[in-house]
Structure formats: structure tokens, C-alpha cells
Simulated scan of single mutants.
Amino acid sequence: MRILTAHAFYATVGGEDISHRTEVQYLKDRGHEVVDFTRQNSELQCQHPLIQAAATISNRDIYAAAKRVIIEFRPEVAYINNTFPALSPAVVSCLKDFQIPVIRVLRNYRFGCLSGNLFRQGEVCTDCIGRTPLKGVIHGCYRGSAPASLIAGFTQHRMASIDKRSVGYFIAVSNYVKSVAIQSGMPEDRIVTRPNLYLRRSNAVRKQISMRSNRIAFVGRATPEKGLDDLIRAFLQLVQWNSNLVLAVIGPARGAIDHPNIEYLGQIDHQQVTRELSHADCAVVPSLWPEPFGRVVIEALGEGTPVVVSSIGGLAELAGPGVLAYRPGSVGDLVEKINSSISLPRELAFREALARFDADFSAENWYETTMGVISDATSNI
């Protein structure tokens, strides 16, 4: 099948970017013809603010570029990830004009929240869901700027309007995202829930089990909503009981506290991230915001590493074998859950994590669901 994929990459590489690359490559590996139509959001930062604003709301250059690709490639279906801001609503408009079936993946809350994360001033915020983004503009929720938020609000309104008319099916990465999308006015009967894709290593993971030793892994940024400070406070209690315990902080993150048992590894490539996760006794996702899914969870499970997550948003749905959930913001509960996780016999924890991954997050499950949606989208055109 000829599939046109599209994505606007973030200035700082994150889970959405990794998910897009993984899915594009996997579709190619399964024998599909794939053309990937992408732009870098960082390119807009070099332009004049007024030009940025106009391009974000409706981009003629993107429409023209998408038109050329469609005419040359003749896609049977379009699979769209993030389009904000570099691709603008223009790419979906162009696909609609050429009557190409469109599937959009919902990996953030940009469809109803200017910041995209339902988080403001240290708390979960849903003030704009199902309403105009007036409060988001007043609070400057997009990049801390009221003018920029006003432009983002116009773009959000235009994108939502185009999506409702032009997108055949939406794929939400969790039931929580689906519920927020429905509250935002998206048609419930056209939203399918499907987790992200992670391709676990079949042989290498078993070799790593003997290398695990007293390590806890955190992957993410040091922004307040990621909850790193809570994790560090919990770790400082745990290290009093086990002086050999090490916290590996992976990504462009640095907590407020330095400690000889805390390793700030910085931004490392994805293979190194995978290696760190495979070596850890457990991974922790202590988010204070309602994560749409939590890609780190399936990456860790796929490497045979159990996970502790905050019970919020899409993360709450992942609780079960291999994944312990704690009350968001409760350092005491976090300490208890981490201690329970790292106290499990390593072989048992390893087998439980892999079994959970294979049961719920395998590539075959992802492919079957995705192709089912594509089949429905193309048959209804």
C-alpha cells in the first residue's frame, strides 16, 4: 500500500518524534511504500514573528509542497502525526482536496490545549477543553506569550475545524486522550485507541539481565510537570537504606540537588537510552501532568525492566503486571512503590515485564490495529 506519512519534528527531540520515525520504518519493513512528508519546527525560529504567525495558521508553501508529493506519489492513505506549527493545517487541507483518506494520530492535547500538556502553574488544567482558548490566551499558555497564544488559538480553531471535516479516523494513544478529544468535540465513533509502537530487541535483552545492579532510570526533561524533583526526594530516602543505589537521569534534565549517587547523563542517543533502561532495576515516570501515554514505559518493559508510574492520564491505564502506580505528588507512596519494584527477584521482574510487553504492546498488535483503521478509512472514501 502507498502510505503518505507527515510529521513536524520538535525543536528538541521527544517521544512523538521517536514514535513517528519508528512507525514509518516499521511500515516500510512490512512492505508498504512510504513517503515521509516532514518539516522541522526549528526552521520557523529563524523567521520573522509575523511570517511565523501567518505560516502557522495557513501555509501556502506547505500546501504547494504537499500537492507536488501527492501528484507524484499518488498515496492511497495519509497517516498524520504532529502538524503544529511547521506543517500547519495546510497539509490536511491539501489531502482533503485530493480526496486522500486521512488518519491522524493524537499524541498530545494540542487539539484543545494551547500548551499541549493540560498543565498550568503546577496543576492539571482543562479550562479550555471543549471551550474557546480564551483563558489560555490570557495566561499566555503557548510559550509564555499572550500574542503567541492568540495565534496558536487561531491555528487550533482552524485545525480542529479542518480535522472534523477531513480526517476519517483518529488514533488516540490512550483512553484518556480519547476522552479529552471527545470533550473537545471530536466524533467518538471515529476515534480508535492504540498504544505507541516500540520494537524490542529479541536477543540482546536477555544478555543484559546479569548486568543489572542497583540502578533506577529516569528519562525526560527537567520541566516541572515531569516530576523529577519528587523522584529525587524519594531517591534520597531510598539511598539511606541502600548506599549502592544509583539514580540515572537521562535527557536534557538536571534536578535541583547534586548527590554522588545521582548521575546526570544528559542528552544521549536512543540506543544508549535503551541500554540504560535495560541495565536498570526499574524505570520511574513520576509525571505530574496527564501524560498521553508514556513511551518510556513500553521501552522499559520491552527491555525486561519493571516501571513505576504516577497514576495520572494515560499512565494510569498502564498499571498492571510489570507496572506499579503511585499517587501523583506523593513522595511517600513513590518510595514505597520503587522499593517494592526493586525488591523483586530480578529474573521474576524480567519475565513479568517482558510478558506484559508481549501481551499488550507487541509490534504485531500495533500493526493489526493500525491496518484495521487504514482498511476502514480507505473503504469509506
Rank of each mutant, 00 (worst) to 15 (best):
V273G: 05
N339E: 14
E276S: 07
E276N: 07
V249W: 04
R295I: 04
G266D: 05
I338E: 08
R275F: 12
D269I: 06
S310Q: 04
G294H: 00
R275W: 05
I298A: 14
T274L: 15
L245K: 03
V249L: 10
L318R: 05
A349Y: 03
L277Y: 13
L301S: 10
E347D: 15
A316F: 04
D258Y: 06
P286R: 02
L265C: 12
R233P: 02
E263A: 10
L318Y: 09
L247E: 00
Q271Y: 03
E303Y: 02
D269C: 05
N261Y: 01
A248Y: 06
K337V: 00
L247S: 01
I250C: 06
P290W: 09
G313R: 01
G302K: 09
S243V: 11
A248F: 09
Q272N: 14
I298R: 02
G266I: 06
E336T: 13
V285I: 07
R254Y: 06
S343F: 06
W289H: 12
E299M: 11
C282S: 02
G332Y: 05
L318S: 12
E299Q: 08
L334H: 05
E291D: 15
G322W: 12
Y326H: 14
D333L: 00
P286E: 14
A325P: 11
L245V: 09
R233V: 05
N261Q: 14
G322Y: 05
I232Q: 00
I250Q: 10
